[in-house]
Amino acid sequence: MTATEQQLSEGADESSSWVKQDMVYIKTAIVLGVFTAIEVFTYFESVHKAPDWLLVITLSFLMVIKFFLVTAVFMHLRDDNAVFTKLMVLGLCIAWPVYFIMAFTFGFLPNWNPILKVLFLLVPPSITGSWLGFSFKGGTGSHH
């Protein structure tokens, strides 16, 4: 292969990699658009008659997926240092019980059995927090 041919080939590879990256963004935007359409669909009369708890769970689920798609793909959290993801997850672990205690206290959620409430408040952040605890490797402690 001549030098010119090699340069052309490298240029084509680079161009193809940019196209691939743009396509990932476009596909993500399409998924986000579809999820938004599903969310709006729940507003219409026939679907809106569904029980409130079902609507809240469905909408929350879609909201969380959209949130993570934007942060992971558009904000490049999946490519940045893992410590950013861990810090975000740590914040969410703390926010989970705080927000849901508020939601139960002010009656935004049904008045479940107290044991069920405690499990709901503590189990998801405990599991995620344990994963975080194991994932932090720690340094050598040699600061000097």
């Binding site: 969310e39 709006v40 729940t42 507003y43 809106h48 409130d52 609507l55 809240v56 909408l59 929350s60 879609l62 909201m63 959209k66 949130f67 934007v70 942060t71 904000m75």
Partner: peptide, 14 residues
């Protein structure tokens, strides 16, 4: 991202 949360909680939640 903030609007994703506001739109769902403020406008769409029953």
């Amino acid at each position: 991202v903030v609007w994703i949360v506001i739109f769902t909680i403020v406008y769409l939640f029953p």
